[in-house]
Simulated scan of single mutants.
Amino acid sequence: MERLKTFYYMNQKRSRHPSLSSKALDDLFQNHSNITLLNMSGVRSSGFETSKCTIERTNCVVIHCQVKGFIPFGEMSFPKVIEGHTVDVREATCKFALDPLRIGMKIANHNRNGFGTLGGFIDSTGTFNKVFLTCAHVVCPIATLLQADFTIETGRQEERVFDGTDGNENGPVGVVEKVSFQLNDLSKVSVDAALVGIINRDPVDGKLAEVYKREQIYVAGFSETTLPEFKHGEIETISDDNFRNDVIKVGAKTGLTIESLKYENSCARLVHHDLRLGNNIMRTFCNQYEISPRTDSSLPSETKQLFIDESDSEALVFIVKNNNPALLKCRGMTVAFTFVQDSIQKN
């Protein structure tokens, strides 16, 4: 209602708005981190969401912020008057006209010869406030990952990461901050992971990328009004009590698929032309979980449906808890698929 009244009055005939000085604008942005937009208006509202809501025709300074009534720690409340003009505080955000990053979307390395899936988001205390998880082999050259002593490396910010669907027109969405590629040790769980510092299109919620088909969300127990989302960050480790539960993933290539877990550790020697070294040593992923494919009833007898395919590397794997509303808990992430179309999932 406030928006409708404000829109009506703003379109009435009125005089030209005054403007604020550069000093006043600079002071506001320097002292208030919650500000998203500043402008002048010919109408001012008060008492919003109360029985005494009024709209007054008068010139005022409008301060837009993300959340009204919230004052960041160490800051003061907004001023009531600025250079003789009363202040009206409204909620609003300002961002580029680009979709935010979402779990499950397609990403590409800077040469666009490696594609994968954006995994989960992680709050960081390092160079970047927020990073996302993906596979190291998606964003880094295999030759680099195969260095003899390669375990964890930081400072690889020359490796840029792009939205895999936009042709790089909008610039990189992130740069590689940290990678880990640890294989061959039968006593440990092999790791193929990278943390990508976000430099563009920050995530705004826990909604998953809409890379799935309508029938896929129905089969998994969701609907068009209750789409899958992962906003709380909860995980659930695999145990004797839950290993028989179905698992789902949302990947850039195959969308939302649902399968079951094989409850034993597996090791896989990956077939890749760059994974064979000069001394004929092959790289092996150790102590992984496999996901069994289901028979696809829409295809000829005994045909198995894909759980993942190329470009699905790093898709998060979830168990679905509760029924209304459905709650996703993360169990791991996909790394590779086998020739029998099983999937390998990190523990």
Score class of each variant (00 low, 15 high):
M10Q: 08
N11I: 07
N11L: 12
R14N: 01
H17S: 10
P18G: 02
L20T: 02
K23L: 05
A24R: 04
A24G: 03
L25C: 11
L28C: 08
L28K: 01
Q30I: 08
Q30N: 10
N34G: 06
I35D: 13
L38R: 07
N39C: 12
M40F: 03
S41P: 08
G42P: 00
F48C: 01
E49T: 14
E49V: 05
S51H: 12
T54Y: 13
C60I: 00
I63T: 01
G69Q: 08
I71V: 09
S77P: 14
P79T: 06
V81N: 07
V81S: 02
E83Y: 03
E83N: 00
H85N: 08
V87H: 07
F96S: 15
A97Y: 04
D99K: 10
D99F: 00
D99Q: 08
G104D: 01
A108W: 04
A108H: 02
R112Q: 15
G114N: 15
F115C: 11
L118Q: 10
G119A: 02
F121V: 12
I122K: 08
T127E: 15
N129R: 12
F132L: 10
T134M: 02
C140K: 04
D149A: 09
F150S: 06
I152N: 04
T154Y: 13
G155P: 00
R160L: 15
F162L: 11
D166T: 15
E169M: 13
E169H: 12
K178M: 14
K178W: 03
K178S: 05
V179H: 08
F181T: 02
L183A: 07
L186V: 10
V196R: 07
I198L: 08
N200Q: 12
P203V: 03
G206E: 04
G206A: 04
G206M: 05
E210L: 05
E215D: 11
V219G: 07
A220E: 11
A220G: 11
S223P: 12
E224G: 03
E234K: 09
E234V: 06
I235W: 06
E236P: 00
T237F: 12
T237I: 09
S239E: 12
D240K: 07
R244Y: 10
N245A: 03
N245D: 13
D246Y: 07
V247I: 14
K249R: 15
V250Y: 01
K253H: 13
G255D: 02
L256Q: 02
L256N: 07
L256S: 01
I258C: 13
K262V: 14
E264V: 12
A268D: 03
R269L: 04
R269V: 15
V271E: 14
H273D: 10
L275K: 04
M282A: 13
M282C: 11
S292Y: 03
R294T: 04
R294L: 11
R294C: 08
S301E: 15
E302F: 06
Q305S: 13
Q305L: 02
L306G: 06
I308G: 02
S311M: 14
A315V: 05
F318D: 02
I319N: 10
I319T: 07
N322K: 14
N324K: 12
N324S: 11
N324W: 08
A326Q: 09
A326G: 03
L327T: 11
L328E: 00
G332F: 03
A336K: 08
F339Y: 14
Q341V: 14
I344H: 05
